[in-house]
């Protein structure tokens, strides 16, 4: 009997070291791969549906066309810095300073101000009791954030159907 007890005692002394090693490795892996979930938003937009399909169909309602042009590119700065440090020309990313000027043209109206653009397109939205679609025509040098701002303004002016036009690099 005493022999049996000895064997049992020996078996309980299982070597934990490899398990702890593996566990720690797993822990480090999960800690490293952890990227805190950031809440993202999205802006809905459309592409012209009828490209190359049927050109015969006439446009029922005239669209509100928003032309977006770069007038002044603006100074490039280093991102993620508290004070403005000019871009060194090598760093992977940059941001534009407040001297960047974007001109928005809707029909005869030209503005540099997004608020003004909003009032203007909000006035133009309803024609004959029907909501008009809008198109955004971004020109050369326009960045993604410029477009996102216009799209945001158009959505706030309650436009529901916004399409993108122009794929060539026009000035």
């Amino acid at each position: 009997m005493s022999q049996l007890k000895e064997i049992a005692a020996e078996e309980s002394k299982l070597d934990m070291t490899p398990m702890i090693d593996v566990t720690f490795l797993l822990l480090i892996f999960f800690m490293c791969t952890l990227k805190f979930k950031t809440l993202e938003g999205k802006l809905a937009a459309y592409l012209p549906k009828d490209v190359g399909v049927n050109q015969s169909e006439a446009e029922p309602i005239e669209k509100v066309e928003i032309l977006v042009q770069v007038i002044e590119e603006g100074t490039r700065y280093m991102p993620l810095k508290a004070d403005l440090v000019p871009w060194d020309g090598e760093s992977k990313r940059w941001v534009y300073g407040s001297d960047r000027r974007i001109r928005y043209t809707v029909g005869p109206m030209r503005t540099f101000d997004l608020g003004e653009l909003k009032t203007r397109i909000a006035d133009m939205r309803i024609v004959g009791g029907e909501s008009r679609p809008a198109t955004i025509d971004p020109r050369k040098g326009i960045t993604y954030s410029d477009v996102a701002k216009v799209l945001d303004v158009a959505l706030s002016a309650e436009y529901r159907e916004i399409t993108f036009v122009g794929s060539d690099e026009k000035q």
């Binding site: 809440l39 993202e40 809905a44 937009a45 459309y46 592409l47 190359g52 477009v147 993108f164």
Partner: peptide, 21 residues
């Protein structure tokens, strides 16, 4: 990318632009 979406056989016409809120 939008141009590629318009090709025959693709014809994706709904887009979503990701932004931060």
């Amino acid at each position: 990318v939008m141009e590629q979406c318009g090709y025959k056989g693709v014809q994706i016409w709904k887009l979503e632009l990701a932004v931060s809120v």
